[in-house]
Design a protein around this nucleic acid. Structure first.
Ligand code: DCP
Length: 1090
DNA sequence: GCCACCTCCTAA
DNA sequence: TAAGTTAGGAGGTGGC
């Protein structure tokens, strides 16, 4: 290893002062106090980093500060062990008989990984917890029959597991008094059998036997059973039974656990503290009060660079990994404690970072493995690490046969495991991913988190950083990376700076978006481990809560089969959307909205699995204790038996209420957005409780609950409309007969026909209270806001100025229209936004019309940036599986033929532009990759953009406001299709010079021999030449300005710009100007020839 | 040119 | 338990 000498001076000249966005005030300090500027030439780093450097040099040893704070000696006889657990797994092994008495040869052993308040890592081996499930006991089943069933199961299981080294498979069958969660049950409890197995894998086997039918010898008959909770993952089972929720604090009391000394040869993990404990000794602290705190866990952020062969995207079987950047940050601290980059081949030093250089990838990989083990992170973050960085490292090490590389989990000698997986859900879409197991360390891929939490049209790190951090990051094309690697220590240093930046950015996103805090809260509220929140869907969260609540109430959750034979059977009716009285409303329109409608319906009417009363059993309950929902299903009322779904909802809405309170207290706009995201996530979790009951391909569908919920909702919106319209009318002394002009699911838009906002608010509040009184608690109709003016286009599409106070409007709010959609191009988005702003805010219709006409003219004259014309659409399934031809799909297939490694995959968004093609060509034949179109000078089909993307949206917003909106699209501005000259664009510079020689002054075709001006224009030669020169000068100036802007972005003013970001408008503009400049220079050259 | 159907994305 | 729900507008394709 060649450890670099560190130098104080940076790599070169000093760049411009780092540009930070202004305006967010103290926000940055609070949330992103750490702010490493990975600008190549920023030499004025924080002073403490210099000191750190100095100390390192004194010691001459990198990696010196990698370790966690030293762990105190653990004395189980004197001290309890308290830590925040973050991850739980289990393995099957020989029992530890000092904490678990058993005759079994192999048992499951739970491992809880976590961090103490002092920041020491812990792995606790929790022993003695046994897998089990239940079945209902037959009525004539007695305690004596338990052994008989147990023996029978044991024999059957033994036959199926002949190779297993095990003394007993079914450990016990125990009679217990429990009740099912399904349907209202008058009896408090009845007999169930708990079937306890030796290991978790036997649960599914035994379940199968019980379901398909098993002979109960002592009763002398064969019976099939419905099983209960036989489908609960072992880890979740353990957490539920021990009341451990994701990320909470646990405690092992004095004398209840055994500790291994740090250097004990029997230690099985790399954690600082390793203990063994019986699960019965575990104390779990609910995450409230002092236990709401967060331990200083360690976060490793990682990014790698690879050198692809010429023109190819890197392939781990062929191309080397050349750099790995890592930062280590302790949660709660403002700056990383380690910033390290490991490079293949030499690399000049970087101020504020450790640089380690290696001669071989082999050494590089192994040293990085050591870094992980030595820094011992609890959480590994990065951008797209799950699909790129981590798999690449693992595959690369395999290719190079670095056999001891894949061992950076916390369990010694335990190899990383990786397999292909797919996640598919309607809300989150379908994604392929690599499931990687790194024992004891959570992976938190920021890309996955941001894709789930934010709807963006591009999820490149570049686009995401720009969006959330107000900071561009260059997109260095993979071929350039190879060039930099093949240069010298300085070019590799430049690469290392990018690499470091890509490791720093995810950490900054985590900080700024408060990901650790928000995800911990979600894990604690829903009870699942934090890692589930990114790898699993909503179902597991709801299921976890149901299981917990059920356990509290001694209820069991049945494992029911998919009903309706295949799943895609009949659905159920959802919400009512009131017909939209479309138009442009020049008076205030009040919006009334039920708070958390479906959850509140379920709470108010006690809708639950455990309160559902089948029609056949109606007479078991006094009629006054039964409620019939509008869909005809019956439920017992709360005073008779309280359901558990309502209780779960109470907790979720409680958490949401707290989040909303925080939101209300916040002033910083960015912080507000983050807190809004937090309360939104909790709202979706609450709504998913309803969704869970309606998920026919799911764990526990119960359409009686979901369809009752929507049926109540439908009744409520109709009732609300009636009551409001009946009350607020002239006949009752109000100014006018009000009108509900629209409403969707839980809202009504009321036109009170009053002139001022304040009066509309007054009436809105009054109406909301009036309506609320007619409903059962906690159902509440709220006055939310006023729209004034209000443009109602159709169902689910409207725009308006939003007022929450009568003094001034808050903002323009648009729903469903192009401004908030990701499947149209920026041009349309911008034109529609600006037009609406002019119409609604400035009330300047003429200005809006003028603007639209100019835009259309610009479009047709080919004056649009390509970046404005890029459309993106998601690839929602495998490209082959589409039934029809679609532009983005065909392009994805085409791109895969060009270069499979960089082509879009399922779940990705595909950006494309529409290019000119033969008349009558289908849109899917005209779609092209924007970068490809740019590089090959393919002409844009401007007319197509006007006809298919711009005109309809514009007509829709202008039609209600003006007469003859169609004329917008047919004026003189639409005839200026002059200079667009696709032949020029498609031919490129060379063709221009050769083929189409026309007079540079008047465009007349030149006679052979002439190269620049026709006879007539030659008289004005000087003037024309001057014009050409001016043109060139202007282009040069704008090119230079754009270039500088890109240099700023990449953080150095003296280096070449390497960025080719598909997401950056500056990039497209720079390319366009570059092309124009080339053409203009070619023109000048013709003068020279002449 | 009409229309059924697929696809995407959004509102709730 | 692998996977929250339905309603609805709009564009495009392809059969007729
Ligand atoms: N992701 C969503 C959003 C909404 N809904 C259903 C359930 C909601 O109760 C109802 C109304 O949706 P809103 O968006 O108005 O949200 P809420 O009424 O739940 O919350 P808020 O208090 O913000 O109005 O639509 C849903 O099932 N899933």
């Amino acid at each position: 290893m060649m450890d670099n000498k560190r130098s104080w001076q940076g790599g070169g000249s000093k760049g411009p002062p780092a540009k930070r966005p202004s305006g967010s005030g103290g926000m940055d300090d609070d949330l992103v106090a750490q702010s490493f500027e990975a600008d190549a030439d920023v030499a004025d780093e924080d002073i403490d980093l210099h000191i750190e450097e100095e100390m390192e040099i004194d010691l001459g040893e990198a990696g010196r500060n990698w370790e966690r704070p030293a762990a105190p000696a653990i004395n189980p006889q004197k001290d309890p062990l308290v830590f925040q657990q973050l991850e739980v797994d289990y393995f099957v092994g020989a029992p530890n008989r000092s904490v678990h008495r058993t005759d079994l040869l192999e048992v499951p052993i739970i491992r809880m990984y976590g961090v103490t308040a002092a920041g020491n890592s812990v792995c606790a081996f929790v022993h003695g917890f046994e897998p089990y499930f239940h079945v209902e006991a037959p009525s004539d089943f007695g305690p004596d029959d338990c052994d008989s069933l147990c023996d029978h199961l044991n024999r059957r299981l033994k036959e199926r597991n002949l190779k297993a080294r095990q003394s007993k498979f079914c450990v016990a069958v125990v009679m217990e008094q429990k009740q099912t969660i399904m349907h209202y049950q008058a009896a408090k409890s009845k007999a169930f059998l708990r079937i306890v197995l030796a290991t978790p894998n036997l649960v599914a086997q035994a379940r199968g036997m019980m379901e398909t039918g098993i002979k109960i010898d002592s009763l002398n008959r064969t019976m099939g059973f419905v099983t209960y909770e036989s489908n609960v993952l072992f880890v979740l089972r353990f957490m539920i039974d021990c009341q451990v929720v994701g990320g909470n604090w646990v405690e092992f009391p004095v004398n209840c656990y055994k500790s291994l000394a740090p250097h004990d040869g029997n230690k099985m993990t790399h954690c600082q503290i390793e203990v063994h404990v019986n699960y019965k000794s575990l104390i779990s602290h609910p995450a409230e009060g002092e236990w709401a705190k967060v331990a200083p866990f360690r976060i490793l952020s990682v990014d790698i660079e690879c050198a692809g062969r010429k023109g190819c995207f890197p392939d781990a079987e062929k191309d080397p990994v050349i750099q790995i950047a890592s930062t280590i940050t302790n949660q709660g601290e403002p700056a990383p404690v380690v910033k390290n980059v490991m490079t293949l081949n030499t690399c000049a030093s970087i101020v504020g970072a450790e640089v380690m250089s290696f001669q071989t990838e082999h050494e590089l990989l192994k040293r990085w493995r050591d870094l992980v083990v030595e820094t011992d992170p609890d959480i590994i973050i990065g951008y797209n690490i799950q699909n790129f960085d981590l798999p690449y490292l693992i595959k690369r090490a395999e290719t190079l046969q670095v056999a001891d590389f894949p061992f950076w989990g916390r369990i010694k000698k335990s190899k990383l495991r990786m397999r292909d997986a797919q996640f598919s859900s309607k809300a989150y879409g379908t994604h392929d991913y690599k499931e990687i197991t790194i024992d004891g360390r959570i992976q938190f891929d920021l890309m996955v988190a941001i894709q789930r939490d934010h709807k963006l049209s591009s999820y490149s790190l570049n686009a995401v950083s720009a969006h959330f951090l107000n900071e561009q990051k260059e997109d260095v094309h993979h071929s350039i990376i190879t060039d930099l690697q093949n240069g010298n220590a300085e070019t590799r240093r430049r690469l290392a700076v990018y690499c470091l930046k890509d490791a720093v950015l995810p950490q900054r996103l985590v900080d700024k978006l408060m990901y650790m805090y928000n995800y911990l809260e979600m894990a604690r509220v829903t009870g699942v481990p934090m890692s589930y929140l990114l790898t699993r869907g909503q179902s597991i969260k709801v299921f976890s809560q149901i299981l917990r609540k059920a356990r509290e109430k001694n209820l069991l959750v049945p494992n029911i089969k998919v009903q309706g034979g295949g799943g895609d059977g009949v659905g159920y009716e959802g919400a009512t959307v009131l017909d939209a009285k479309q138009g442009y409303y020049r008076e205030p329109v009040a919006t009334l909205d039920f708070a958390s409608l479906y959850p509140s319906i379920m709470m108010a009417h006690n809708l639950c699995y455990s309160t559902l009363l089948p029609a056949s059993r109606l007479r078991e309950v006094p009629p006054e204790d039964v409620l019939r929902s509008p869909s005809g299903d019956t439920f017992v009322r709360a005073h008779h038996a309280k359901g558990i779904l309502p209780e779960i909802l109470e907790e979720l809405l409680g958490a949401r209420k707290r989040a909303k309170a925080d939101l209300k207290a916040a002033t910083d706009p960015f912080l507000k957005a983050v807190l809004d995201g937090r309360q939104l996530a909790l709202k979706v979790s609450a709504n998913s409780v309803y969704g869970f009951t309606g998920a026919t391909i799911g764990k526990m569908p119960c359409l009686e609950i979901s369809s009752s919920t929507t049926a109540y909702g439908r009744e409520m919106i109709m009732h609300t409309r009636e009551l409001v319209q009946k009350t607020y009318c002239r006949a009752n002394g109000y100014e006018a007969d009000c009108e509900v002009i629209y409403g969707d699911t839980d809202s009504v838009m009321v036109n009170f026909k009053v002139a001022d906002v304040a009066r509309a608010m007054e009436l809105g509040k009054e109406a909301a209270d009036l309506v609320s009184k007619t409903f059962v608690k906690p159902i509440k109709l709220e006055f939310e806001k006023v729209y004034y003016p209000y443009l109602l286009i159709s169902k689910k599409r409207y725009a308006g100025l939003l007022w929450t106070s009568p003094e001034k409007h808050d903002k323009m709010d648009t729903k469903g229209i192009e401004t908030v959609r990701r499947d149209n191009c920026l041009l349309v988005k911008n034109v529609v936004t600006t037009s609406l702003e002019k119409m609604l805010i400035e009330r300047d219709l003429a200005g809006a019309i003028e603007f639209v006409k100019n835009t259309i003219s610009d479009l047709l004259m080919n004056r649009m940036d390509l970046s404005l014309l890029v459309i993106t659409k998601g690839l929602t399934q495998e490209a082959e599986n589409y039934a029809t031809n679609a532009a983005h799909v065909e392009l994805a297939k085409k791109m895969r033929k060009r270069d499979a490694a960089t082509a879009p995959n399922v779940g990705d968004r595909v950006p494309y532009v529409i290019i000119k093609a033969a008349k009558g060509a289908k849109a899917y034949e005209k779609a092209e990759d924007p970068i490809y179109a740019l590089e090959h000078n393919l002409p844009i089909d401007c007319q197509h953009y006007l006809d298919h993307h711009l005109s309809q949206p514009l007509l829709r917003i202008f039609d209600p406001i003006m007469k003859n909106a169609k004329e917008l699209l047919s004026g003189a501005h639409t005839r200026s299709i002059t200079v667009s000259t696709p032949s020029l664009a498609s031919g490129g510079i060379m063709k221009f010079a050769k083929v189409r020689l026309s007079c540079l002054g008047c465009k007349a075709t030149l006679p052979p021999g002439e190269t620049s001006l026709c006879k007539h224009c030659q008289t004005k030669e000087a003037e024309i030449y001057q014009k050409m020169l001016t043109n060139v000068n202007e282009l040069e100036a704008s090119f230079s300005a754009l270039w500088t802007q890109c240099q700023r972005c990449q953080g150095s003013l003296h280096l070449d710009v390497l960025c080719t970001s598909r997401d950056c408008p500056i990039f497209y503009r720079r390319k366009k100007v570059q092309k124009d400049l080339g053409e203009a220079n070619a023109v000048i050259a013709r003068f020279a020839d002449w």
